[in-house]
């Protein structure tokens, strides 16, 4: 059984003003250098982009889910669960939500995300292109209030985004010309954005 971090205590906003450091969720060692606070600050939205966006997003959230947080994956039917597991994400706290394939699904998307934010601590989403700017702004406020960490795959559009993790220069090893198999990939992750000041970058190898 995992020891659950007392997330209720962490999110206690009645406590005297706390430094951001106490309201962070853990992050792997390799990625911790990207964040001033050394972890994922609750209430923030980050975007993962580039050729290794999905693995980086999964590696980013894995330590938080291991610590007891629940992960909601919204409208990402292509998520590779073996990869998620290999990157450390406990699948017993992973839930997938689909807003549907019909024409009304984009209208529903902000409400679904808001409802997910009430119960889940980490969200992994892709922002649909046809949601109104107003709805996205309201949603961003709601996500911040609920202290949810939101990871967007790809372009966050008009959703308030506190930082972008750009993956670049992937390099595979292990596969030759007609022999071997994919063994390891190295990729550079660059952090930029309002809350990720300076030029922070790191090398991420998967598997580590």
């Amino acid at each position: 059984m995992h020891t659950a971090v007392d997330l209720a205590a962490l999110s206690d906003r009645v406590a005297p003003p706390a430094l951001a450091r106490e309201r962070t969720m853990p992050v792997s060692e390799e990625l911790s250098g990207l964040f001033v606070e050394g972890g994922l600050v609750r209430g923030r939205t980050l975007a993962c982009q580039g050729p290794a966006a999905t693995s980086t997003a999964l590696a980013l959230v894995a330590p938080a889910v291991i610590a007891g947080a629940w992960l909601a994956i919204v409208d990402l039917p292509t998520i590779g669960l073996d990869a998620a597991r290999e990157l450390g994400v406990p699948l017993e706290r992973t839930v997938a939500i689909s807003t549907g394939d019909d024409l009304g699904s984009s209208q529903r998307w902000p409400d679904v995300i808001a409802a997910a934010a009430d119960g889940f601590d980490v969200l992994l989403v892709r922002v649909p292109t046809d949601v109104s700017m107003g709805a996205l702004r309201k949603l961003s406020v709601r996500l911040r209030q609920r202290d949810v960490v939101t990871v967007v795959l790809g372009d966050p559009g008009h959703m308030g985004c506190d930082g972008v993790l750009q993956t670049d220069a992937p390099s595979w090893s292990g596969l030759g010309e007609g022999y071997g198999h994919l063994r390891q990939r190295e990729v550079t992750v660059k952090a930029s954005g309002r809350r990720l000041p300076g030029d922070r970058r790191c090398q991420l190898a998967t598997p580590a």
Binding site: G68, V95, D118, D121
Partner: peptide
């Protein structure tokens, strides 16, 4: 844990907001 309970409640609510098959 408290997080488990909150997630269970959110799942129940989301299942009615979308559909039972949409939350998996």
């Amino acid at each position: 844990s408290e997080a488990d309970r909150r997630a269970a409640r959110a799942i129940a609510r989301l299942s009615t907001l979308t559909s039972q098959d949409a939350v998996t």
